[in-house]
Every structure is written in structure tokens, then in C-alpha cells.
Amino acid sequence: MSKYDNPTFSIKLLHPAYWGVWFGFGLLAFIVNILPLALLLPLGRSLGQMAMPFAKSRVKVAKRNLELAFPDMPQHEIERIVLENFKNTGFALFETGITWFWPTWRLKRHIKVHNAEPIIECAKQKKGVLVCHPHALNLEVSARAFAILGYPGHGVYRPHSNPAYNLIQYWGRTHNGNKVIDRKNLKEMIRTLKTGERLFYLGDHDYGRKKAVFVPFFAVKEACTVTGANILARATDCAIIPMTGYRDSDRKWELYFDDPIHENFPKDDVEAGATYMNKAIEKAILRKLEQWMWLHKRFKTPKDENQAKGLLYK
């Protein structure tokens, strides 16, 4: 048995210790299937706004991220974006439920696609694609929508410590042909790309110093940035296609594919590669600034190892 085996159902998961997880996801499935999207959206956004007084530390993080990324942005605009970001975070709970529990026909009605030709051409050529997507709050929807188009991919994930939660998470993320890969299983990521499949790559968070460099990200000149794209591109000679998934004003989820960037990607220079990737990610985030995960401490790791983590958030 491999340490990377996918989770399977066991009678042990019916133990009372897991009843709360089963009930919580059962309730979420019921709510998203019984209520129309026109009601789910304002309900979720209201929940996000109501959570702000109880999540003051995250409000502070979101504001600080925006101040660092956009130093010339007026304070009133920062306040507006933070409020919208929390509202969208509240709805993201329902978006997860929608992704995991909606039937395909229902979700398909709410998807719009732009510039999918590069993905289609790579599929015809059986060329692996590193699909670069930012940590948008509706990421779960984007991943399944991508599969509904007929081009399922492999998502990199961290297994949950609660086995019942982990099983539900695995089941929810593997609809329509999508698969998941443990984030530590680099060998499987390389195999996926070499065999002409698609791998979702989220390189826009601060994951610490390991396999990272310090390059510009928005206005921050030395942002800790992972070098996974270089590692995978060198090992597989895959295509690299940035993708943005966001929700528009018509309650549709839009998938927007940028043109491939692998021909000019400096895969043999990790700093240049990370800088190049950050530029592509910035473009994707700016399409819907309020729908990116600003609540994450994007700039927590300082370049100077003698400095404490999170110093910019003090």
C-alpha cells in the first residue's frame, strides 16, 4: 500500500466522532440543492459580512496585503475591497457545496468560457499542460467547470487530518474525471504532465523558504515565491497556460484562458521563472481583484532569515 493511496470508505467512519462532519456536509448539500442560486448568493455574501467582527485578525491581514501590494490605493478603496472580499469568502462556502454536490447539468448552465483553443490544441497533441490558476475564492468551481468542458485535470491537495472530511473532500473534487495528487507526490505530478494530462498549479501563496525565491509580486519587491513551475517545466517540457476563474455579475462562473507562456518561460532560471509566473498571476488576479484570497498572509516570509515571520503584519 502506498502512502499516497486515495481515501476509501470504511465502517470506522460511521463512528460518533465523525457525525459532526457527516451532518455538516449533509446540511450543506441540502442547502445548495434546495435553494436557487439567486438566493444562495446573497445569503452567502451576508454570512461573510457578518463574520467580519469575529475575524478581526483576518480583516487586518486583508487590509495589510492590499496596502503592501497597492501602496497608492486610497484607504476607502481598500476598505471596499476588503468588505467585498469577505462577502465573497462567505459565498465561497456555498461554492464549495455547489461544486461537490450539484449535478453536472445544473452547474453547466452557469459556466462561460473564453479562449479555450490553446487547451483544446494541447489535448489534441497529447501535450501535458501546467494550468496556472490563482487562489481565487471560487477555485473549487473552476476546477470542476474545467472538467465539465471535457478536459479534466489533476489538482494538488493536502489531505485532511480528519478521515471523514478527507473522504468527502476527495469525492467532491473528483467529479467529471478530475483527480487529485498529494502535494508531496512530485513523481506523480511529473508522470501526469509527461503522459499529456493537465495539472493545476497554484503558485501564488507564500509556502515558506523551501524551493522558493524572493521576487516581485505586485509592489512587494521580495515576495517569497515557489519555484515549482520551473521544476515541472524542466522535467516534462509541458505547456504552461494561465487561467482565471471568477464569478461575474450575472451569476455565471467564467473561465478565461490566457495564451500559452511556455515558449518564453525561462525554465532554467528559477528567479526569472518565478518573476515571469508572478506577472501572469497578477494579470489573472486583477480580472476580479475582490475574488482573490486576500485573507492569506501572502508576504509573511522575509528574505532575511534572521527576521521573524509575519513581521509585515505586526
Rank of each mutant, 00 (worst) to 15 (best):
S2C: 08
T8R: 15
L13K: 01
L14W: 07
H15R: 09
F23Q: 07
G24A: 12
G26Y: 05
L27K: 06
L35S: 12
L39C: 13
L40D: 03
P42L: 12
S46V: 15
L47C: 12
M50W: 15
M50K: 14
K56A: 11
V61A: 02
V61L: 00
A62R: 01
R64V: 04
N65V: 01
A69T: 02
D72P: 08
M73C: 07
P74H: 00
I78Y: 03
L83Q: 11
N88T: 09
G90E: 06
F91Q: 05
L93N: 01
F94S: 02
R106W: 13
H110K: 15
K112G: 11
K126P: 11
L130R: 06
A145C: 11
A147Y: 06
G150K: 08
G153M: 05
G153E: 00
Y157H: 09
H160C: 12
H160I: 14
S161P: 00
P163K: 05
N166S: 08
N166W: 04
L167G: 06
W171A: 01
G172K: 02
T174R: 04
N185Q: 05
N185M: 05
K187S: 10
M189T: 02
I190C: 01
R198G: 02
Y201I: 07
D206P: 05
G208E: 03
G208L: 07
K210S: 12
K210G: 06
V220A: 10
T225P: 07
A229F: 11
A239T: 09
I241S: 01
M243Y: 09
Y246F: 13
L255K: 01
P266V: 04
V270N: 00
E271Y: 08
Y276S: 05
Y276P: 05
K279V: 09
A280Q: 03
K288W: 00
E290G: 05
Q291M: 08
M293N: 08
H296P: 02
K297N: 07
K303R: 14
E305K: 15
Y313G: 05
Y313C: 02
